[in-house]
Write a protein that binds this DNA or RNA. Structure first.
Lengths: 140, 140
DNA sequence: AAAAAATAGTTAACTTTGTTAATTATTAAC
DNA sequence: GTTAATAATTAACAAAGTTAACTATTTTTT
């Protein structure tokens, strides 16, 4: 790694530490961080299926299955068997689930607000764009 | 949240998802991601103590205690009882632990390299600086 | 068209990693 | 000098992950 890469690496390490630390905090509105993340994923990917979530979070299908069971039993999400392929269950967020998402001050929101407070509007736009570029490259 | 904040929030959510997914991958050089993170923390904070690690990762002291026990038994790290306050055990990374850190192609390093490949040198420097500013604000 | 292979999801048995409460050893404070 | 606080550990347990084996369904092959 050259100097610029090393610098970026260090900041990114701090960022990961921070995300790690905040992820472990539990119970916002009666759901753990993991539950919250899954609800939000379904919210952002309506009609998605178990397999996709498992892939997105890199967690095994049985583990996701258990989490979904809890979320369905507690009416945060619901599933509908596809009529085209009855092996498939499409997931969506209930009103209760939406309420949790909309009313949870999650830590990313806090960060977004602080970022906007700390940086000028142009810097924030720039940061967003640069991060997006890197992520697009990394995820492809 | 205003428009710029929302945009940042979305990119940051993708980032968190990505970090989450990659964190769960285990076993680089015979240690899990959690072990690796702890070893690296000690590497970057020589002579640190259990309590600090617990705080940094927001994990309870007993959980860290168990991880440290494993890392000490397997000679990745070592501890030395402080002579000033014998309740305190200062931690440091052994040569074996350093080897793991130096020779593990961890995912942050991959990201740093890809970031450097995707962005111009100025953009990378800029991104690093902006991220650093936001993190400094968020962590204080 | 029937048999075989593949896919989506679940169940079961187990492991890892976290938690809280209580304990030990040591230091600081009144 | 007793009491309170602190750093770390042990014990008992809970949460959330894993793999392997299973069910139900769809797709592919012959």
């Amino acid at each position: 790694m050259n100097r610029a890469e090393r610098k970026f690496y260090e900041v990114f390490t701090d960022l990961q530490c921070f995300i790690l630390a905040n992820m472990n905090r539990s119970d916002i509105n009666g759901v753990t961080a993991t539950h919250y993340n899954i609800i939000e994923y379904i919210y952002r990917n309506d009609k998605c299926i178990l397999k996709e979530i498992a892939k997105a979070f890199n967690i095994s299908p049985p583990a996701i299955s258990k989490q979904l069971k809890f979320l369905i039993e507690n009416s945060f999400i619901e599933q509908q068997q596809s009529s085209l392929d009855r092996r498939i269950f499409n997931l969506s967020v209930t009103d209760k689930g939406k309420f949790v998402i909309d009313n949870s001050e999650n830590f990313r929101e806090t960060i977004a607000k602080k970022a906007s407070k700390t940086l000028t509007k142009d810097d924030l736009k720039n940061l967003t764009e640069l991060l997006h570029k890197v992520l697009a490259e990394v995820m492809k």
